[in-house]
Structures are given as structure tokens and as C-alpha cells.
Design a protein around this nucleic acid. Structure first.
Lengths: 349, 349
DNA sequence: ATGAAAGCGCTAACAT
DNA sequence: ATGTTAGCGCTTTCAT
């Protein structure tokens, strides 16, 4: 394949408008010290010639790349894609991130990085060196990976940590997992439930703990006990199955169960069916995530919706603000989720 | 934010290894004319210093960018994301594309482009100018958009046209829609059905026609008529509803219906429920796409699986081959889908 | 307010 | 087989 050069460069525009390269550059970047009439003339040439600056060249000369890098855990993401269970986390990320980026003149690039590998650092360093992004968005469990956080911090690249509260580095954003868990718990209490079980997610994710905290707090405040009502899963269907069996197998089983994601809720539903326990007649189920499938189960699942798109959108805004010299927000940004009521939760009979 | 320069450049490596820049460049790009011992020495320095070439700089000097751009229709994609119906086309694209790219040392960038806009050309031209991708992957309906195809052709950028057969430009790949439709039709004929209805997709997509063709051909070969058995939809739930009502409202309704995507199959299922028609007892339904939700409907839907991941993966391979000077395949690449049998299709009673 | 010159990190073309 | 030179398109200095 032959050399493929930029067809219209800043040079063509400068010549066409009869000004220097600098002036064109100033117009492109909306910098001061250009007379309005000059600016107009240059803009006219740009439009006429259909000129678009080359990101590569801009980056080369040390300016912005207008690229925001979003990274997800490789194994987990690929497993979700292969599993085809309708997990649309990536889609919602892209929805929120790409649209906001486009709005602000940026571009979002989505990448997979292996959290567990010994060479996370090298892998990420290579991606950054290659792409030179202006900012990075971290999702769980990357958000809490000290190797990644330190690397970004030292390279002085603005970055967002979604689902993380900790530390002095990076911009923290959370989806109010504790509040959402309280919401779900309160919903069940309001329906008359007293023994409300909880299936926790993988301890590798901070948000797993927060969800448990919310449930415990709401139960405590309602004067309800939680002994024997907590089971630990890891977000997988299999782990949800085991947890549900544990909770429903006791002598005094819960009348409602909150599971920390949809897969584990599905598993709970399945275990209930197996045991001949009617949902929601004898057991209410509330799920987390609200992925597409929860509308198609029998009954459809009441679920806490995770505002992934909005959170990523906010992350983009904050990163770009930070990159432009704005101050790092002192407090984590909290984006609240909502409870979507469907057929799987009902009054205690 | 301060100037962020590459920390380790080719210059550092050259100095460390005591060779010229060129030699390092040759090693990076695996070019000939480097003695093995030299190569080893340079590689050692690269590893030691953790050097990674800057894509921006590589691109600037006219070489590859190692970027493959995949574009989807903006409106449709955003509608799918917002609708949260579990359409995982994008996920499957990323699965196939990103993994293959990574395997070959490339990176896939996913973008949205508005097919219907008057300025598709400008929009795409801008993206290409900014990113300088080594290749582009087009999906329907972009694959048949002459503005886009001509632009890419003239810019001499290798590109794949997924879901398109036409023209002398670009690398065509299809998922054998006709064959898949025949498969579905044959399946129903084998179950004893004689009156098999078909709900077509939007005529804007070539594949809609091919699916109809496959159904018609298989029906004809079995000596079965198709009069009054074809209804046109546009892939939306609403259009599927209308089409199903049309097909099931006649005096001699079909005993089986093939719908051109999952949304329209869902609609058909709904219309059947409304009318008190049992599925699969009185009506068999076969769907297209096999997105996650079809496993959760009652009954689960028999569906033709679209091998999106594999097709995109092949597209990446072919583009990279073309970019390296390989010949353009004369024939369209055909990736075959398969029929996944579930509860919505049963023998005619 | 505008322009000229220097250089970003890399590779193609041309030496040797 | 290796090195030298001249850019790629743009943005920074630093003039004017």
C-alpha cells in the first residue's frame, strides 16, 4: 500500500487564506490574539477545503490527543461477551462515554486490560505510549488496582475511578451502591418482609461490600436482624445458585432475597423453582444491575438500575475539566441509581 | 496540564544499544537487513527501557497506524443501547474484532457514523483524517452506502463491507443470509409445516432481501406456495406486531412464521398470545439473530445465529492482508450461521 | 495581532 | 548491514 499523506493540511489552509500557519493553528484551537475578521477568513478556508487537523500531528507537537481511553477488565468482559447473557455494561459505557466525548470534541477508545496479569503495568504503559490519551477511565476492578492507579498518577494523566472511593489520586465516581442497597431493602421492608436475605458479590469489587453495608444498615435501622441471612457469591450464576441454596436450605429461610447482580438473581429464581417455592408468592427477589434479561424472566425481576451510562458520561466531563487545569473534585461524585419494580417482589403473605 | 512528552523514545534506545535510529526502527518493524546479534542487542535495550513506539509519530512519518476503524450506524446503535433489549451486535463485533486485532498487533476503534446525514462524507473524512486508520470495517447499512464506499475507495484505504456483495470496491463478507433462511424454512418443512409465513426486515438492508429469497427458494423447491405469506417489517417491534397481525389475521393463517429478527419474533409471540394462539402448539416461530433474550422468552425461541464475531474477525484478517499488499479476494467471503433449536418450533399437530 | 523558526518521534530514501 | 538526512503536520517558543 502506498504512502498515504494527509490530503489537506494546515499549510493548504494557510496558503488559501493568505495567513501564516500560526494563525490557522490559533483558529483551530480557539486561541486568543486573532481578529474576528481574520478568524472568519481562516474558518472559511477550512470549510472550503474540508480541512481536519491530524490528531497524530497535534499529539506529536505536544498538544492534546482528544482521545479518552476507557478500560475494562479483559477476562470478565470477554466472558460476558461470549456468554451472551445480555450483560450490557460495555454498551452502556459506550453510550454514555462516546456521546459525551463527541459532544465535547473528543473521541473515546475502549480497551481491555488484564487486571490479574503480572504485566498490567507494561500492558497499560504500552497502550498509553501508543495512543497518548488525554485521560483514562477506570472501571472495577481496575479502579482499585494500585499498580494502575500509581502509574496513571505518576504519568500525570487525568483519570476517573468508577466504583472507587479511595485515595488521593484520580477522580472518584460511585453509583451509590450503599444507597441503592438501602432502597432495595426498604422496598422489601415496606412490603412487610422481615427476614430478608442478601447474596453478596465478589469481594474483589469494593461495591460488593458497599451493597452489603447498605442492606445491613437499613435492616438495623428497621430493627431487623441479619444473622444467617448473608451469603457470599462472586457474581457468577453458579455462585448465586450455591448462595441461594444456602439461604433457602435453612430451617428458617428468608421470605425475600436481594442478589448483588442479575446472574445471581436468575440463579436464585432457578433454585426457588427447583424447590417449588413460588416467586413472588412465597419468595420475593430483588436484583442488581437491571440488564435486559430481567424483563424476560418469569416473573420479571424487580431490580436496582445501575446508571452506567450517566456515570461514564460524568467521568468524561470531569476528566476533560481536569485536563484543562480545573481542580480535582474533593468529594467522590455520586450518581444515584433507581429501583425498577417488576413482578418478582410482592407483599409478604 | 503540562507538556507530556514520550518518556522513552527511539533515541534513548539507539543510544543505549549504541546503534543508529534506523537500526532500532528496523528492529521494531521486523525489517530485514539486521544481523541477529544486532537485533538481540536492540531488543534488550527496548525491553530494559520499556520502550513503546508512539503511534502518532509512526503515523506521521507515513507508516502504519496499526488502527482498524469499525463503524456502525449511529441512530440504530444508539437506539439499541437505549432500548436495552439485549441486542448485542456491538459486543459481538468487539469480541471478534478486538481479539483478532490484538492478536495481529493492531487496535480496533469503534465509531458511530450517521448514514442518513447529508454530511456522512465530511463526518467520515474527518474521522479518517484524525485517526488515519489502516483499514475500515463497514456494517449494514453503511456497507452499501455509495458515498462511503467511494470515499474509502478513492482514499485507497482497505475496507471490508459486511453484509454486502456488491461492487468492485472493498472486501465483501456476508453471513449467508439466504442459506440461513433456507435452513430455517427447511427446519419448519421437516416438522410438517406447509403454510410458513415470513416477516421481512427493512428494505434498506440488502440482507432483508436475501432472507426473503432463501425462504422463497426453499418453499418453491418443496413445492409450497408463498402467496399471502410475506409481510414486510423494518426490524422494529411495532412493525413486527403489524406484520404478525396481518399474517395471523387472514382466513387461512400460517402454522409457522419466520421473522427476520428477534424483536419482530417477540412481537409475533405477543400477537399470538393476544389471539390465544399457542406457541408452539398451534404456531411455530423461528427467529433471526439469536440475541440473548431469545433464551428467556416463553417458550425460548428457535433462532438462526448470526456469526457476527467470526465475520468481523475475518474482516480484520482480510483487511490487514490487503493492506500488506495481498490481492483483494475475488469472491465474497461467506460465513455460515447455524440454527439453534429451542421450544418455539414443533411438529405440526 | 501576526509571523518565523525549531522541534516532537519516527520512517523512507538515500548513502556508505 | 548499517548510518545519515530530510521530512510528516502541527504547536510551541520567540520574534516583530
Amino acid at each position: 500500500m502506498g504512502r498515504r499523506r494527509q490530503s489537506v493540511t494546515i499549510r493548504h489552509v494557510a496558503a488559501d487564506a493568505g495567513v501564516s500557519l500560526q494563525t490557522v493553528s490559533r483558529v483551530i484551537n480557539d486561541e486568543p490574539n486573532v481578529r474576528p475578521e481574520m478568524k472568519e477568513r481562516v474558518q472559511a478556508s477550512i470549510d472550503k477545503l474540508g480541512y481536519v487537523p491530524s490528531i497524530a500531528a497535534q499529539r506529536m507537537s505536544g498538544s492534546r490527543s482528544y482521545l479518552i481511553l476507557a478500560i475494562n477488565d479483559r477476562d470478565r468482559t470477554i466472558a460476558d461477551w461470549r456468554g451472551r447473557q445480555g450483560v450490557d455494561w460495555v454498551d452502556q459505557m459506550l453510550l454514555g462515554g462516546m456521546l459525551k466525548c463527541a459532544e465535547l470534541g473528543y473521541r473515546m477508545i475502549f480497551e481491555l486490560v488484564d487486571t490479574h496479569s503480572d504485566h498490567v503495568e507494561r500492558e497499560l504503559r504500552a497502550t498509553i505510549a501508543a495512543l497518548q490519551p488525554d485521560g483514562v477511565i477506570l472501571t472495577p476492578p481496575h479502579s482499585d488496582n494500585p499498580l494502575i492507579v500509581d502509574l496513571l498518577h505518576h504519568q500525570r494523566i487525568p483519570f476517573a475511578r468508577i466504583g472507587s472511593l479511595g485515595g488521593e489520586a484520580g477522580i472518584a465516581l460511585v453509583m451509590d451502591d450503599e444507597g441503592a442497597a438501602r432502597l432495595a431493602t426498604r422496598h422489601l421492608i415496606d412490603l412487610g418482609h422481615r427476614r430478608i436475605g442478601f447474596i453478596a458479590g465478589s469481594p474483589e469489587y469494593s461495591l460488593s461490600r458497599w451493597r452489603v453495608d447498605g442492606w445491613e444498615a437499613e435492616m438495623r435501622e428497621a430493627g431487623l436482624g441479619t444473622d444467617g441471612l448473608l451469603a457470599e457469591g462472586d457474581f457468577s450464576f453458579a455462585s448465586g445458585e450455591a448462595a441461594a441454596r444456602q439461604l433457602l436450605g435453612g430451617t428458617n429461610p428468608p421470605t425475600a432475597i436481594i442478589a448483588s447482580n442479575d446472574q445471581m438473581s436468575l440463579a436464585t429464581l432457578e433454585v426457588a423453582r427447583e424447590k417449588g417455592i413460588e416467586v413472588p408468592g412465597q419468595l420475593s427477589i430483588v436484583s442488581f444491575d437491571n440488564t435486559p434479561i430481567v424483563r424476560f424472566t418469569q416473573p420479571p425481576l424487580t431490580a436496582v438500575d445501575q446508571p452506567v451510562a450517566e456515570t461514564v458520561s460524568r467521568a468524561v466531563e470531569l476528566i476533560i475539566k481536569a485536563q484543562r487545569g480545573g481542580p480535582r473534585p474533593a468529594e467522590p461524585t455520586v450518581v444515584r441509581g433507581s429501583l425498577v419494580q417488576r413482578g418478582s417482589s410482592a407483599p409478604l403473605q
